[in-house]
Design a protein around this nucleic acid. Structure first.
Lengths: 351, 351
DNA sequence: TTGAAAGCGTTACCAA
DNA sequence: TTGGTAACGCTTTCAA
């Protein structure tokens, strides 16, 4: 079943069928109807490969994200979902590529073989060879995340520096003086993963400004690591009364560790961080956090990419988002060291 | 940059380049090296659309799953991840299609336009028009899930009936007499979503066999709904001492509701169900559950599909998995109604 | 061991 | 308003 067959049965030429379908040339009502009847009857749909070959567009975008070492985090997965849905509203399909670096086979296939019209890159590193490569090629892409040199790029990012800093200030305002930072796994930090780096930077700077005592930790992306990390924190500095985390997968473990150490949240210990909203709400008490607007970010990335595909010479655009901290139930005034309880409404003690 | 250019620079014909690349015809070492040099130098990769058009294979598989109403559950997302990674090991890319029914635009594109060589279907309904349609077409596909008539199909499924029943028996063995079932949302149950239907069936049947008192509930896929559902359960029947759930997204809310009702898990109340392992481990106490082996299921589905693509006339194969219940910390012996505590080692009371 | 040429199913240009 | 035809970039058959 191909366009020639349709043309024959409708008694017209192939080009007329093509134009009737695309609308790029006027076709008389009469013939259009004739053609449509045949198409409906035979359930014809033009072959995507042939079309892509002829007009150079695949109507597909690539979504590039690193292979999960062990598993994907909820946030990563939220991005995937939102990108797919946003693309669908533009009648684009999404081709997934589990590629962390430039040299991955899948990445090469996607771009080298022209399987996609454009790409969305996730899990950006501050120095990211995928971004550099694509930029050098002039290949249409939008990053979810921001490299160290984002000036002329297309991206939608989160201001992790500001977000982590806001968390610190929130804790400092509540009177906490000794706090910890629970980051993503060390390999991610070392490879320059953006949120891990910028989050750490924001945390460190804000804590210094407020003169807080801090310790920073890396933590595996799972509950067991979270629990172990918390135990380490209390072991290293029992006076710690609060922490900031970027690691939503560890969150359940952190809470568990706190419970086992008999630190009640938020009475004895405050927890906050940067986490997708729906994950923040699954823990008890619900996490006060800067909610990562994954859905919005995915949607915006797609919109940016569509714009770029429509006008290849458009000037680079981007969105830097700074979602506010959602006050939920996991933070409270710092208790006096040694005292068990402080009424929630009491002015916090200054040491 | 195309094959003709490579041929010209290497001083051979296009067919020779093609054969050098595919290995489908012997090429002298000498010319092969000449060709390879040019290819490396220019970074040439054959165009995927042209190749697909010429040989009828796209080297892409479609992954079909319903659009998230509100968001995706962790399990859905685990499937996506595992399918993508498994496909990558076979050098296949994955095209995502958010399609719940046959008539979705995206589904039509995928199949009608021959964008993919085969498909993997997720979120199967007992009567699923996508499965029927594909089967009628003889289109290579593998379902993750099992319809009401799975005899001649290709699929990898979970025995939800047996799993839910095992949960019930586990609770009954611990002495629980009044238990509840927390299912997925009502719309899913009504539309015949497999795990919701078979899970409910298994629960009901096993409970009847053991003469238990039961109530069944549907519950939204989020923490707030879980909490509300639990309150309803205790309101409807305060004597309830345990529940079985398929709804991992509601789990956090269920725990929260239990805590607020002052029911300690597992001392006063036992919770179990069918949930992906890593989610079971994020809650405290960790959930005793039949762990959904999402990674294995995704991998097996891809393997089955590869097999089917290789041998189009192979006889249908499938895997029905029945993972054991992982004993963790959320279930314990039923307490006597009105009594607060029962030593874990005590024989459970028979009423 | 290699080359020439005919597809694969569209699109879009050039004529009419 | 329409038809004929040359691309698009590859694979594969047929010949040499």
């Amino acid at each position: 079943m191909n366009i020639g067959e349709i043309a024959k049965r409708a008694g017209v030429s192939r080009s007329t069928v093509s134009y009737a379908l695309s609308g790029k040339r006027t076709v008389s009502d009469n013939t259009r109807q004739k053609i449509q009847r045949v198409i409906d009857e035979l359930g014809y749909r033009p072959n995507a490969s042939a079309r892509a070959l002829a007009n150079g567009r695949t109507s597909t975008i690539g979504l590039v994200f690193p292979p999960a070492g062990d598993h994907y985090t909820g946030m990563q997965l939220d991005f995937i979902g939102s990108v797919v849905e946003a693309a669908a509203t533009h009648d684009y399909d999404v081709l997934l590529s589990p590629s962390g670096v430039d040299s991955d086979r899948s990445f090469q296939r996607l771009l080298g073989e022209r399987r996609v019209d454009g790409a969305i890159l996730m899990e950006i590193r501050l120095e990211d060879d995928r971004v550099d490569h694509l930029a050098a090629l002039g290949f249409p892409c939008v990053a979810i995340g921001r490299t160290a040199h984002p000036e002329n790029g297309w991206w939608v990012g989160l201001d992790h520096t500001a977000l982590a800093a806001a968390c610190v200030r929130h804790l400092a305002d509540l009177g906490h003086r000794t706090i910890a930072f629970v980051n993503r796994p060390e390999t991610l930090l070392r490879t320059g993963y953006e949120s891990a780096r910028r989050g750490l930077e924001g945390f460190t700077k804000a804590a210094a400004e407020r003169g807080l005592t801090v310790r920073t930790y890396c933590c595996g992306d799972d509950a067991a690591s979270g629990q172990a990390c918390l135990e380490q924190i209390l072991h290293d500095e029992p006076a710690t009364t609060a922490l900031v985390t970027l690691n939503e997968a560890a969150l359940g473990g952190i809470y568990r560790g706190l419970a086992q150490a008999d630190r009640h949240v938020p009475r004895d210990f405050s927890v906050t961080g940067v986490v997708a909203g729906r994950w923040a709400e699954t823990v008890t008490p619900q996490l006060t956090a800067a909610d990562v607007p994954a859905e919005e970010m995915g949607r915006r990335a797609v919109e940016l990419l569509m714009e770029r595909l429509d006008r290849p010479d458009a000037t680079p655009r981007h969105h830097l988002l700074v979602p506010p901290i959602s006050l939920r139930a996991s933070t409270g005034p710092a208790g006096l060291p040694g005292k068990a309880e402080v009424p929630a409404s009491a002015p916090f003690p200054q040491s």
